[in-house]
């Protein structure tokens, strides 16, 4: 049966979320971790918009939520990059393995 249902979008979103999660856990560059967090947030947006279309098409709950997710993600990228730049100024590196001030 050649049809696109809610399940297709949920599977796509789960796969994209896993790719992002893998990147967050395994990348060494702090900016790359920030990029992979963006991928995870976008996977959530696909889920929200798909649920909005298939489950509550007249309420727009999912679309409103995804607007707020996009807002928070934009704020998060700005502050995250500023923190990385501030750390780079002190340590001259963005390698997460070197960020070990809290280690004894």
């Amino acid at each position: 049966m050649l049809t696109i249902s809610l399940t297709h979008y949920v599977v796509l979103s789960a796969l994209l979320f896993s790719i992002g999660l893998f990147g967050v856990l395994t990348k060494r560059n702090a900016v790359a971790v920030l990029i992979c967090i963006e991928l995870m947030l976008n996977a959530v947006n696909i889920n929200l918009v798909a649920f909005s279309k298939y489950i509550t098409p007249l309420d727009f709950t999912g679309q409103i939520f995804s607007i707020f997710v996009i807002t928070v993600a934009a704020a998060e990228v700005g502050v995250g990059l500023a923190i990385i730049i501030a750390i780079y100024r002190n340590r001259l590196t963005v390698d997460l393995d070197n960020f070990d001030w809290l280690k004894w």
């Binding site: 796969l15 979320f17 893998f22 395994t26 990348k27 060494r28």
Partner: peptide, 21 residues
């Protein structure tokens, strides 16, 4: 943009997440 030393642990945790999902 290289991988760190936890690549196997990260892959395992990701597989676990996919399985639970």
């Amino acid at each position: 943009n290289l991988f760190n030393k936890q690549i196997m642990a990260g892959a395992g945790l990701t597989a676990l997440t996919v399985a639970f999902g």
